[in-house]
Nucleic acid binder design. Sequence first.
DNA 1: GTCTATACGGTGATAGAC
DNA 2: GTCTATCACCGTATAGAC
Lengths: 194, 194
Amino acid sequence: MIGRRSGPATRAAIQRVALELFTKKGYEATSLREIADELGIQKPSLYYHFKGKEDILRALLDERGDEAEQLLEWISRQPQRPELIRAAVLRWVQSFSAEKLRGIRFLSANPLVARTFEGRTDDRIGSTLNQLIDALAGLLPDRSPAKVLQLRMALLSINAAVDAATSTPFTDEDILAAANAGAIAQIDALLATG
Amino acid sequence: MIGRRSGPATRAAIQRVALELFTKKGYEATSLREIADELGIQKPSLYYHFKGKEDILRALLDERGDEAEQLLEWISRQPQRPELIRAAVLRWVQSFSAEKLRGIRFLSANPLVARTFEGRTDDRIGSTLNQLIDALAGLLPDRSPAKVLQLRMALLSINAAVDAATSTPFTDEDILAAANAGAIAQIDALLATG
DNA sequence: GTCTATACGGTGATAGAC
DNA sequence: GTCTATCACCGTATAGAC
């Protein structure tokens, strides 16, 4: 669909369209011409706002929040007991509003692109998530690899719920509820073991 | 890496390399030249074996097994009680050997590509999985959307485990064990509700 | 801030020699 | 079965007019 534009294309508008197309068709499969068409401008006009395609992607990734850092810091201030795992995971899962699901959907649709960018720049997604896992894994009664991996799965419940809901009529509320219930079930099983 | 080849490139060899590259770099980001280089042949030689890039992808997708159909048929022959859910999900998760994780990894790395192909051809991945969900959802004590979605998450535990293990040193055995434990935890929670 | 025009490389793909 | 040569096309990117 080619949209008639009302005013000048802003960075925010470009990012909005790019996020939508990257999520629907994938980063690699989306051309700058498609983004420009959707905005009703010409392809070279995008280069006034961004250095190139990768720069648009970088801007989208930089928009992420710092919930992971905040949670990590919160954890360090709590008494280090196994029950902290449950509280922390629930805090994490519940920090995702319906609005933030857009970001999750983008990452789910473009797992390799996100992973490629993890290496460069600051990389606040992956590494902080790993620190989070490490901090919580230390509290596990049974710290075998399978258990640690299951803890990781619990933290990634939102991603799993989003993936499970693709191509279905489930609502954002359903997804958040299922992610929450799923995380609880995993954590309960992990804490019951030890 | 450019490989010296010993004999003629077979369809199987091409598929092997393609699966590896598609998984590592993504379908769109992988060029036919890269596949040819890896095999030590020239790009046009691939066209003797396959009609084109998409044909290679199709061949890979057609290689999938029919575990879903078999499980669906098995379910229909069992007494339709809530406990059947647990048995069925465990059968499903345990049908994935370390070997079959290659397929899961490919699908995880290329979610949109797989989804695009679901529409065309026979599509045995998605639709059969949906039938599986429907058959099991009918046995749920509580059939609210969030519960049905969580059932879906339980079935997709292998995918979630693979995703959770990417960029980590977890072994295939760890992944299968965590997927199994995760599925059990989800199902137990679902059955305890009603 | 957006346009037209243009250059460049790489891609999927085909024809035809061997 | 593999090659060389070649194609049209597309996406990225830049220069310069308005």
